[in-house]
Simulated assay, not measured.
Amino acid sequence: MTSLIPWQQRLSTGTEDIQDEVIRWYQQTRHGTAYVPHMIWGTLQTEAYANVILRRVVDFLGVPDDVAAGVAKRMERQQVLYDGEHHYDVILGEQALYTNVGGPQVMRGQMERLLRDIELPSLALGILPTTAEVSVVPMPGFDLYDGGRAHYELVSSGVDITDQDELTLHEKAFDALSRAASHGDAASSLISKALVFWSQD
């Protein structure tokens, strides 16, 4: 089954309520996976980076402006990385390290955060190099949650998929992306390279 709900409906009261919903998803998911090709996964975003992202969402969709409250909730959601009860396998596209969100200062702080958090026992972070050969066709980012659900964020809508055959294909796709990604020291090296880029005068 696939459900599609327009963002302007889901965000009709602002960003805080949906962040509460996402917190519940993550708290209920003991082992989750995420593929994010063009930006930083929300659960690893710095406060400054998240502020820029949610500001853009509010301005683009014309929904109620509660960016500060939404950012606070996004920061609260990140506690799942530190409570010892959850584990996440995350693949970021190398492009995510270079997509300009808020300018060099914000991006430097974000790269420094990634370099710290890559060592967390709750996190397996991979970086998919731009030139990596992957055995699946290019695809948008998605999250997989316990309980049988894949989630996509499109321009106008959020999409949830619960059909088991479709979920199996998502798991297969994530495995292929993970095999092509760099992990450990190789992933840290790619992040460090991006940090140097954003630190140039």
Results as ranks from 00 to 15, higher is better:
33 T>F: 01
201 D>A: 06
145 Y>P: 00
92 L>D: 11
95 Q>Y: 07
123 L>G: 00
128 L>K: 00
133 E>T: 02
28 Q>H: 12
41 W>N: 06
175 D>I: 12
36 V>G: 03
91 I>S: 04
69 A>Y: 09
88 Y>P: 05
1 M>R: 09
39 M>H: 06
75 M>D: 11
22 V>A: 12
17 D>W: 13
82 Y>R: 06
98 Y>R: 12
38 H>C: 03
141 G>M: 01
6 P>S: 09
9 Q>K: 07
182 S>A: 07
110 Q>T: 08
35 Y>P: 06
115 L>S: 00
75 M>L: 15
37 P>R: 00
16 E>Q: 07
103 G>T: 10
55 R>G: 13
172 K>Q: 05
62 G>F: 13
132 A>Q: 06
7 W>K: 08
121 P>G: 00
91 I>Q: 06
181 A>Q: 01
148 G>R: 02
39 M>F: 11
22 V>C: 06
176 A>F: 02
129 P>I: 01
151 H>F: 15
171 E>T: 10
176 A>Y: 01
196 V>L: 09
9 Q>E: 15
143 D>M: 10
94 E>L: 02
47 E>P: 01
22 V>K: 11
170 H>G: 14
201 D>R: 08
162 T>I: 07
144 L>S: 06
196 V>P: 05
29 T>D: 10
53 I>K: 01
199 S>M: 10
136 V>P: 01
38 H>K: 03
44 L>N: 07
171 E>F: 08
95 Q>S: 13
20 D>M: 15
20 D>I: 14
197 F>T: 09
78 Q>D: 13
122 S>N: 02
116 R>M: 04
94 E>Y: 04
149 R>C: 09
97 L>D: 07
79 Q>K: 13
169 L>G: 02
112 E>V: 14
107 M>Q: 07
145 Y>C: 00
156 S>V: 14
168 T>V: 09
24 R>H: 01
161 I>T: 09
81 L>E: 06
47 E>H: 03
26 Y>D: 03
117 D>V: 04
159 V>N: 05
172 K>H: 14
57 V>M: 05
50 A>W: 00
24 R>Q: 02
198 W>F: 08
43 T>H: 04
91 I>W: 04
3 S>Q: 07
138 P>D: 10
158 G>I: 05
38 H>L: 05
10 R>G: 12
104 P>K: 08
143 D>Q: 05
193 K>H: 13
19 Q>F: 12
84 G>Q: 08
106 V>Q: 06
22 V>T: 10
